[in-house]
Nucleic acid binder design. Structure first.
Lengths: 371, 371
DNA sequence: GTAGATGGCACAATCGATTGTGTAAAGTAA
DNA sequence: TTACTTTACACAATCGATTGTGCCATCTAC
């Protein structure tokens, strides 16, 4: 009946010691062991010492399964991401794992592969694993959100990040894309640029819509006109960036700066500018978005917006832990928007060096720290 | 006494249905439910149907904790990696998660942050979480391997990948770096290069030693002399690649090709060649190693060796599952070496196009697939 | 000296699923 | 019809930790 024997047939393997073993050895009850280990007040200091010493001696490790089963909650957090590749998601996961582990939690990670069905299955698995909370970045094919209702009805803390369910009744952490577009454009203005073009992304995606809005905000604030002929829309691929730059340079009055809503697009623009013999940033300044790894190795390196991947993960965990600690008590859902970070690099840095004026973004100190 | 009430105070949250609930509803025992769900032979087909239907109706999800506790093994695999960043580890983790999930396992992921102490703690946590097996890539500071003895003594399947414990009594999956150095150099030879330099890495690290050895193997096979003046050692950073190229080009007889043991180093070399007005690959061909993301966006794109990250993850899982399925029966440890994949790109492609001769590596079809 | 308080520990139920054994009823063979 | 299988299910122990309650002993107070 016992699934394992206390004395394994292979004599080189040993089974872990349980509280029962410790209790037997000390001639006390398991209650005493359990309470001694969790520093319960009803156990005397002498007994506590004895138990602790014995636990050390046998290198006792509590069985988390048993504990979680009894308590109804494990020390596990579930993550559901579309995939673990590229620069963004791995970094966020890194942030999540770091923050979670610091708080005594471990993470079990699932990929949806951009597939709603898989996303649903992942949620079921996490539920059956009795995780203490779930962090989700939606798959691209998720348009129906009913499967999250099951999570909510179990009373399980749920936080979305980056790709979120819109609305103010969910907990979510995102990057403030509008602010990103704003500071980026503002920076180009500070560099003396006055005709700033924008290579925009698909406007049905919030991130691109918001980046464009930030761009417009900065222009308006500077008293510059909103010129639609300077805004080109595409899917943000590298060659589309090149094509966009070609079109911009063919304009009667070419721009003196380009703010691309994505780094690959910015890269294409940079390469096209070079092909046409233009100097960057002297003739045309360029700024991208996302802080892709390659932006530091181009010549010149590309000014971009860091998406605070790590911070996003940490913020998501903080929020999740808050909800967990609320422990069922009503918790007002919250949406967190992270301040993007402008990384000024060669592709846009036209001012004479040194005089670190107040306009020069302090975050520039991060230039080149990418491994 | 009950940690949770069946009827939560917050009426919008409901507790999950258990086998006991199903049993009560059908008026049978939990035994019947359990066995019906696991398709046990001692349950009649009629009853099985009834149970299955009811389970669907209530959307029953077995409590994995309880199951794992009873069976002594969970459906979880543990991963310990130095960190989840860059290109390599995320991709391997991606491969691991994909393969594991296909086999019905989920992964709990831990970072050692290159710290042995943290690595030790991670192992303890995974042990106490009762994982079914552990996948490890060693931290850089791990020189003492005793903590893995604890894993072994528990009879827990253990597989190392990439950064492994050397020896034939461990299970491990690595890239065949020597083969990588060989095919890379061989490719350069096939392109007509005859003076092939090597930008080598620290020789106390196995990967670099092996890449260098593969390079030498190819030269020897081609009947070319081993010329130490063409081998420069460094830490493989970008600027060291540039410096290396400077030194090489200053030689009385400059090389017509450079095989760098790392992509960043190759990048530096490429940039330096351009600075000196050389054409790549016509004047000097360049090949790197690791298939970093940026290698496809340089001009020309850099020929490199793909490290088969995903396959490494999958191979590691396959091996781990084999050991798990051996279920304690003696299993002879195995070391797997993955065949690297040469990606021929512009930095070394000097032959006229089209005639896809047998020497032209077929893996070239992967060029440009990086998102 | 007795009542009440406090300290220190054990009993036993419990979380939810699994499984060896027991036991009826139904089916088969002789 | 008797005996022996097979089918179909229930009983109850079990995995390991947690926790409400009960109990005894010692201690304080009046």
């Amino acid at each position: 009946m016992a699934p394992r024997k206390k004395q394994a047939p292979d004599s080189t393997t040993t089974s872990p010691v349980s509280m029962a073993d410790l209790a037997r050895e000390l001639g006390v009850s398991m209650t005493t062991i359990s309470r001694a280990l969790s520093d319960h007040h009803s156990i005397g200091p002498a007994m506590k010492q004895k138990v602790l010493k014995l636990a050390k001696k046998y290198n006792y490790q509590p069985n988390r399964l048993a504990s979680a089963l009894r308590k109804g909650k494990s020390q596990l957090l579930g993550i559901v991401v579309p995939y673990i590749e590229g620069r963004f998601f791995p970094s966020v996961v890194h942030g999540i794992e770091t923050a979670a582990s610091r708080a005594g939690y471990n993470v079990i990670i699932c990929q949806s592969n951009e597939d709603v069905a898989q996303e649903r299955r992942n949620l079921d698995i996490l539920l059956s694993a009795q995780v203490a909370g779930i962090l989700v970045s939606l798959s691209r094919t998720t348009h129906d959100f009913r499967h999250f209702e099951k999570v909510r009805s179990r009373g399980l803390p749920l936080v979305f990040f980056d790709r979120i369910v819109e609305g103010d009744n969910v907990n979510a952490v995102v990057l403030d894309d509008q602010e990103g577009g704003y500071v980026s454009t503002r920076h180009l203005l500070n560099q003396g640029c006055r005709r700033i073009a924008h290579l925009a992304g698909p406007q049905h995606l919030n991130i691109y819509k918001n980046r464009r809005q930030g761009y417009l905000d900065a222009l308006r604030e500077a008293g510059l006109p909103e010129d639609e002929s300077l805004i080109l829309y595409s899917d943000m691929a590298q060659d589309q960036g090149a094509e966009g730059m070609r079109q911009l340079l063919a304009l009667p009055s070419a721009p003196d700066a380009v703010f691309a809503a994505g780094d690959y697009c910015a890269l294409g623009a940079l390469q096209e500018a070079h092909r046409q013999g233009l100097r960057v940033p002297e003739d045309v300044a360029i700024a991208g978005f996302s802080n892709e790894t390659f932006t530091v190795i181009t010549q010149p390196p590309i000014t971009t917006i860091d998406q605070r991947c790590e911070e996003m993960g940490q913020a998501a965990v903080r929020l999740l832990l808050e909800i967990i600690e609320a422990d069922g008590r009503p918790f007002t859902p919250r949406q967190v928007a992270l301040r993007p970070e402008l990384l000024v690099r060669g592709s846009s840095d036209r001012l004479p060096a040194v005089p670190a004026g107040p306009l020069r973004d302090p975050s520039a100190k991060f230039i080149g720290t990418l491994a």
